[in-house]
Nucleic acid binder design. Structure first.
Lengths: 218, 218, 218, 218
DNA sequence: ACTTAACCGAGACGGTACGTCGTGTCTTGCC
DNA sequence: GGCAAGACACGACGTACCGTCTCGGTTAAGT
C-alpha cells in the first residue's frame, strides 16, 4: 500500500563495491527506516483508542511518532493506506492452518485463532479496515490481497486434503464452504448481534462440514 | 434515534382552537414536517455519492435540503443518527418472509431479496451504516434493533415451521443456522471478494439446510 | 480594505421599530465587533515585534486575539489588508495641517508631526505597509487612498493659502512642491542613510519654499 | 554579503604547481563558478515575477538553477543576502555622473538615468531590496554601502564643482540637497502616487537648484 | 597512483504556517 | 419556540518552504 516508488531494492549484489550492474540506489538521503516504523507503531497505538478510525488524525500520528506530517504524506497517500500497512506489518503469519488429519479439526482450530484475533485489540484494526474499505475500494483491495487471499490459499489446501481423505465430496465448492464458515464469524464480529466465542468455530464446522460429510458417505 | 425530547405529538385534536381537555400541545411553532423529510431525503441522496459516510457532512446536508444547520442539530444528535433514520425511513417492509410450505424455498426467496437490496443503491447505505457502526456503538445498535431483529423474528417463525414439518431437526440452533445463511451474504457484501449473485442464496440454502435435512431423516 | 460585502449599514432610520423602508439588516448572526477590534489590536501589537511584517503570521494574530483563523480570513483577504486596516484604524486625524498665516510654518509643523510618527512605534507599521506594497498593488493603493490623499488634499489648501498671500508663485506645481518636501522624509525613513530629526522639516522648508519665495518677489 | 568564510581566493599564481610562497588555496574541490552564476541569474529572473521578494523561495531558485538547495545555503545565509548579491552583480557602473560644466545639467542627467533604471525591470529588484530591507537591517545596509554611497560620493564631487563655479552657495548642505533631489524620485518610485517620468528630474533640479542659484547671486 | 578534503546533486527529514473545510454553538429577525 | 441565515471558536486537513541532514559522486592538491 506504500507508494509504488522505485525502491532502492534489497538486491545489492555482494560481489564488489564499485556498484556492479543494477544494484543501484537512487540519489539523495535514503528513507529513514526508524521514522517508518515509528509511524506504523503510533498508528496502531492510536487506532486502538476510543473513536477508532474516523477520529484518528494524521496530525496526531505524526506528533506521536515525532515525525513531520510531510513524512507521513510522502509515503502514504491516505490515512487508510497507513492503517492498512500498520495492520499488515503487525499481523503476519499467526493464522497458519494446522494439519491434524481431519478437515473439521484443522478448520476449527484456525477459525478459533481468527476469532481470538478478532476479539483482541487487533480486532479493532480489522474492523477499522473493513469500515474504511466501504468507502475506499483500494483499502478493501489491500485487505483482500494482503490478508484474506494468503490465508484462503492455505484454506484451499486444507479442504483439498479433506476431499482426498474422503471427508468432503469431491465436487465441493470450496469458496462456498469457506464463506459459509467464515461469513458468520465476520457477521458476528461486525454486527455484534451475538457473542463471538471460540466455540462458535466448532458449531460452524459441525453444521457445515458435518452436513457435507453425511453427503459423501450415506 | 431522533433525540428523546418530548415530542410535540401528532395528537392535534381537531375539535376547537381553545385547546381542549388533555390533548396538550407545547407552545411555539410546531416542528416542520417538510424540513424533516427534506433532510432525510438529502441525507440518502448524498450518502450514495462516492466517499460515502465519512465524507458526508451535515453542512452539505443542510445546504442540499435548504435548511439551517441548527435544524439538523436540533433533531439529530449525530451524523450517524441521521443516517440511520434516513435509512430506516426508506427501507420499510419489503423483506417479508414468504410461506411456501418449504423452509428452504422460504429462506432462499427472502435471502434473494436481501441480496437484491444489497446490490441496489440502498446497499451503499447499509454498507455506510455498518461501516459507521464500527466506531459508533449506537449506530450499530440502531441497525440491529430497527433492521435486523424485526426480520430475524420472522425468520425464527419460518424455521419453526420447517421444524414442525420435519424439514429441520427439532433441536436446531436457529441463530446458528441464520448466521450461517446470512453471514456469507454479509461477508461477500462487505469484503467483495466474490460476486454476490442471487443464486448465492440457493447455494447457501442447499449447503446448510440440505445438510440438516439429511440429519433429520437418514 | 475589508471585503466589499454589503454591510448592514449604519443607516438604521430611527423613526420606528417595525423596520422602515430600507434600513435592513441581513439575516444571520451579526459580525462580532469585539472580535474585529481584538484582531486589529493584536495585529498592531505583533507587527511591532522584531521580524516585522514578513514574520507576522495570521495564525499568531488569531491566537493572540482569541479568535478563530476563519474569522480573520472571513473579513480580510490577505495579511496585508489586515495590516493596512489596523494601521488606518489607529492613525486617524493626528496629522492635521495648522493655519498660522505662513506656508512655511504650516508645512513645517505638519511635517514635524509626520516625522514624529515615523520615528514612533507606528513608523514600523508604515514601513511594513510600504514594504508590503512593493509586491501587493492593492496594499499600496490602500495606503494612498486612505492615508496619503486625505492629507495631501489638506496640503493643497495650505499651499493655496500661501499663493493667495503671495508667499509662493501663482503658477506653482503643488505636487512637485509636496513631493520635494515629503520625498526626502520618506527617503530617510525608508533607507535610513541619515538621521531623521524633526529639524529636517525646517531645513527642507527652508530649501524648497525659501527658493520659491525669492522667485515671487525678486 | 556572501558569508565571510575564508575565500579560496582568486590569487591562483600561475607559475608552478608546488604552491609557491603564500598564494595558498585550501584543499578540496573549489567552488563551482557555474553554479554561483546560475543561482544569481535565477534569483534575478524569479524576483521579477509577480509576488516579488516575499514570494521568492530558495526552493524555487535552486530548482530553476539546477542546483542543490545545500549549495545555495552554503554560500548565502539568507534570501535577502542572495537577492542583494544578485542585484549588485548586475547593476554595475551605469550611473556615472557626467561633467558638463553645469551642476544642474550634471545632476539632471544622472537623475534621468536613475529614473530610467527604476522604470525598467531592474526597478523591481530595487523595490524588492528596499521592501525586504524594512524588516532586515543587513539588507538595507547592503543597499546603502554597495549601491547608494558609491554614487553619492560622486554626487558630492559634482555639487562641489557647482560650488566652485559659483552655481551653489558655498555653505550648501550637500546631503540636504541630494535628499531633496533624490527623495522625491524614491517617493514616486515606491508609493506610485504620480507618474515617474524622466522629465521629473528636470523639474526637481529646477525647483531645488534654481532656488539655490538665486540665493548665491541675487 | 592514492589519499584527503571540500564541493556538488539529490532528496528525505522535523518543523511551521498556510488557507480551507467541517464541527457544533451562538445570535439575530422572522414566522 | 421553530426556522434560515450565517458568524463564531476550534481543530484537522493536505501543501509549500524552511533550513538541516545524509547519501553517492566529483574535483583538485598534497602526498
Amino acid at each position: 500500500m506504500e507508494q509504488n516508488r522505485i525502491r532502492r531494492a534489497a538486491t545489492r549484489n555482494g560481489s564488489n563495491n564499485h556498484n556492479g550492474s543494477n544494484g543501484k540506489r537512487p540519489p539523495g538521503r535514503p528513507r529513514s527506516e526508524e521514522s517508518r516504523q515509528s509511524i506504523l507503531r503510533s498508528t496502531l497505538k492510536l487506532l486502538k483508542q476510543p473513536g477508532g478510525f474516523p477520529e484518528l488524525s494524521i496530525e496526531a500520528i505524526a506528533a506521536d511518532a515525532n515525525v513531520g506530517k510531510t513524512t507521513v504524506y510522502r509515503w502514504w497517500p491516505t490515512k487508510a493506506a497507513l492503517v492498512a500497512d500498520s495492520f499488515f506489518a503487525s499481523a503476519e503469519d499467526e493464522l497458519q492452518f494446522p494439519n491434524t488429519g481431519s478437515v473439521q479439526r484443522d478448520m476449527s482450530l484456525q477459525m478459533r485463532r481468527v476469532i481470538r484475533i478478532f476479539r483482541s485489540d487487533r480486532g479493532k484494526v480489522v474492523a477499522a479496515l473493513l469500515a474504511g474499505g466501504q468507502s475506499d475500494p483500494d483499502l478493501l483491495e489491500a485487505f483482500r490481497e494482503r490478508f484474506m487471499w494468503p490465508k484462503r490459499r492455505q484454506a484451499y489446501q486444507t479442504l483439498q486434503r479433506g476431499i482426498d481423505r474422503g471427508e468432503l465430496p469431491a465436487d465441493s465448492d470450496k469458496d462456498l464452504i469457506l464463506d459459509s464458515l467464515y461469513g458468520p464469524i465476520y457477521m458476528r464480529f461486525l454486527i455484534r448481534h451475538d457473542k463471538l466465542a471460540e466455540s462458535f468455530a466448532d458449531e460452524l464446522c459441525g453444521l457445515v462440514l458435518q452436513g457435507l460429510k453425511r453427503q459423501v458417505r450415506p
